[in-house]
Design a protein around this nucleic acid. Structure first.
Lengths: 188, 188, 188, 188
DNA sequence: TATGAATGAGTCTTCATTCAT
DNA sequence: GATGAATGAAGACTCATTCAT
């Protein structure tokens, strides 16, 4: 009943294709994306992957954009916490640890990080994410501190991707506390 | 005579092949490696790439190992500095900045980091490098500090790879100083 | 009112499609025709190209017919000149040179000539055009002369298509004069 | 026994591929060439068509070059006749008629003529052939006459291709005789 | 009726790997 | 041992045609 009419739902199909592509990018890397894998995973005929995306690069771009969107969402939630409870190392560490415990998010971050240097067309995407991240932090801590925290966070993400184990919370806690310098202004 | 025996120098040819493969891995990523590219770049016949390496995966492994070897060398030099001059944040930052200014080293690090999560057979390589790195640091600073410094260093490397610009020395300096905690023991 | 009924004007749309197809055939050859190119060029939705023509071959046939129609028009004008001013080499050369200076006409002739031998279904079209041409000439010059003039004209057209430069008028003049033999009959 | 050793004869295989491609170009036109058709016709695996020719365009170029070479050979024979017996309309007509009776030659000429305007990379080939042809004639008849004879010959070839029937010898005779003007020089 | 999504066959091309020479 | 030809499996992409809406 909730199945609803399946046939002819371009929006849905497009989303299915992008989601399948994103999953493959996360699991096997941006270079491992093929039309065939996407079609098989999405359960759609081969032709529809080219129906919706003129080239594989377009599809890869859509997949990476979808992945970044999830990370942006996490970032927005983090800021909401800062607004609600104030920005503190412990709040940040809690959020970061949650992030690292979500393989989907870690994989997405990893994929974007890998795609940047190898595919010039995606460099901007990675830079944009990085810039956004730092900018958000810099609304609560000093710019220098924001740079350092972001950089450490990147390293933690890569390490998590490599070991497939989230970095220990204590480690995050010590490092973030050491790098964290709140902005001096009284008001934001 | 000083020319050395040119024809029939398998060692030399093998090295040429590995070097070419490593260069391609750095520039285009581990997934972009092909026999043809290697042969063309090394200036050797196509057949010799399969003569020396049974499969392309073997060749990729050799290339990544060669890249790691360069990083290990840098690590050994760093430790030599520590032994000679003592381990200090500034000594570390100087070495790290040199590292980040060498695109070859950054590219190598990036390639290994990318290969790890995507190709299970290379995960061990990445973990090994990371472990070695931390172990070296931990001979001079606390284990916790070593973890944090290594993680931040990873993030700095990825950021450099992404922007193709070495991270500013001041930024490295502030962060490393904040994370650096010498071991208490008087002797090592 | 002068706007005419725009929506629901099947004739108009059909003509737009055929014209677009003809232009593509002239520019890229009969084999390069695709529904998508036609739709894009005509500015109509993809579906309408199959709505009006059951198969691509049908559309190609319509395009070639339209091209031939333009040539037939030129032929009719030429005969009108003959009727008005009498058939003379110089009148023919003037008309032929105008023909060769019109890339649209040359392209059309070229397209039909190419399509004939390669696509059996279009052979008749080419033969028909050729026959018409000769028949018209043969009303004013001897049949033998008509054959020769038509054949030379074909060659001139092909040469123009190849070099994208109309054949020099002097050359046409000399050749046509040499090949031209008026009919002896007093009446037509 | 005359079969000789088949295996590993790159020269032979390359020739087989080019010949098959040339036959297809003649029969179906330059645009109808595909790797699959060539492989099937030559009786070689699909992969070898790309082994010997990096792209289909390269293969098409080789095929057209082979076809032109046959025509050049005919041209050389024609000149040999002129040298031996003197250049006369009847000698030319005899050779031309022989040419038109050979579907292979007519098809080749037709293919090159078609390829020229549609594929810019082959325009030069067609122009070159045309220029050579005229230059040869101009060694025996006036340049103006050579232009006209060549142009008529082109038309005759196209007509033969279209109707799949060689043009009648009498027609050729009348036209060539009318267009033929020997060089005035006493020597040459 | 008009439209554009759907799809599978077919296109060119790349390539790992094998193997004759 | 060294080399380059051989080959079939994929890969990206195009497209005629069908058909739901």
């Amino acid at each position: 009943m909730t199945e609803a009419p399946r046939r002819r739902d371009p929006e849905r199909r497009r989303r299915e294709i992008v989601d399948a592509a994103a999953a493959i990018v996360v699991e096997q890397g941006p270079d491992a994306l093929t039309h065939r894998k996407v079609a098989a995973r999405a359960g759609v005929p081969l032709g529809s992957t080219t129906q919706y995306f003129a080239t594989l690069d377009d599809l890869r771009a859509a997949a990476l954009a979808a992945l970044i969107a999830e990370a942006e969402e996490w970032l927005a939630e983090l800021e909401a916490v800062f607004v609600r409870e104030g920005a503190s190392p412990s709040a940040y560490v809690a959020a970061l640890h949650r992030y690292l415990c979500d393989p989907q998010l870690v994989g997405a971050d990893f994929a974007v990080t890998c795609a940047g240097p190898l595919h010039p067309e995606f460099t901007a995407l990675g830079v944009h994410w990085s810039t956004n991240f730092i900018a958000m932090l810099a609304r609560y801590i000093t710019p220098e501190s924001a740079d350092a925290v972001a950089m450490f966070t990147d390293g933690a993400t890569m390490h998590t991707a490599l070991t497939a184990q989230p970095v220990a919370k204590e480690l995050l806690d010590r490092a973030i506390t050491a790098l964290w310098i709140p902005r001096q202004e009284t008001t934001q």
